[in-house]
Design a protein around this nucleic acid. Sequence first.
DNA 1: TGACTCATGTAAGGCGTTACATGATTTT
DNA 2: AAAATCATGTAACGCCTTACATGAGTCA
Lengths: 180, 180
Amino acid sequence: MNQRQTDVAVLGALSVEPMSGYALRQAIRDVLGHFWSESFGQIYPTLAQLSADGLVERTQEGAESKSKFTITARGLAHLQTRLSEPVHSAPPRNGTLLRLFFGRRLGVVGCRRLLEDAGSQAVRQLGEFDAIRREIQAEEPRDDHPFFLLTVSAGEHAARATMTWVEESLRVLDRIESNS
Amino acid sequence: MNQRQTDVAVLGALSVEPMSGYALRQAIRDVLGHFWSESFGQIYPTLAQLSADGLVERTQEGAESKSKFTITARGLAHLQTRLSEPVHSAPPRNGTLLRLFFGRRLGVVGCRRLLEDAGSQAVRQLGEFDAIRREIQAEEPRDDHPFFLLTVSAGEHAARATMTWVEESLRVLDRIESNS
DNA sequence: TGACTCATGTAAGGCGTTACATGATTTT
DNA sequence: AAAATCATGTAACGCCTTACATGAGTCA
């Protein structure tokens, strides 16, 4: 029920810059990585479909088996339509919170490990966001950049919220331990 | 690759209180709803499997076709094991951020709608968390409650972070609009 | 030359939702 | 008596990841 949004990610990336399927996957992993993911098994069939629909154009480059995909005018129009459609989010599945909810069965030690893992992940992410932000600001300015930075900011806010939650929660765990 | 965690949710819920498959689904929707979800198509087969493995016991109640599932001692042990296993989180897929990233193609108006939707969703969630919190605190105290509250707190932190991010981002959009 | 990266694709399988089918019990 | 809710299940299908298969170019 994730409602097939691979085309949005692919067309979107190609609207920024033409590239190969392989490069597409790298771009999605490295740039959208903190809020989106695609695998080869999705990208290549999608690219073939988009090409058949005339939304992207494939151009051979030098060696065969090496190609670049460029978004067409119709592709841009289609992207705009798809971007305007309502967001259909997947049902939530947070393994950390699931385990913490049943923390009485897991035990305080396990809960503490869970929280510490979540905390260090948030710290690591903050570092990555900082790197992305500086990378964007090092480039020559583009109209896209403010929007890119909006998504980085979302990640930063989420990561910082996680960090304060973790610290609070660790203190709560201390109290649980001393009470029992 | 979500690695089959339905059994954890089901055993966990039954470790709190024995109930029917139908009630199980309601409990998961109403109590774990903000961080977990299961559908009937998952719950019933899982329940059958757990029963075959001797991790839960099915007891007919009055009318046939009405039954309750109780977790067994082996089930409790298995739950503890499963809870201790490392969290394997699904690849991220945030439709709002995907759209916002390509905001230049979507347009500032569309971005603003996206943000406003995210903001009002966060406000609604904060209300729900408040209700859950009060519901928990209205019950007679249980050892589980502190852990339940930890997950509620996670939701509150996340929702508040979203709200401030939305407000900041709307102001950024204003500047983008006046600059172009 | 051997290892690594770039590059394109396919096939199998897992996980999960939605829709369907059916019937009992409770409420209005 | 009708409608809503409680209750249990199955079947079909969709989406996505993983693993496999293959080959060209690059670098040590």
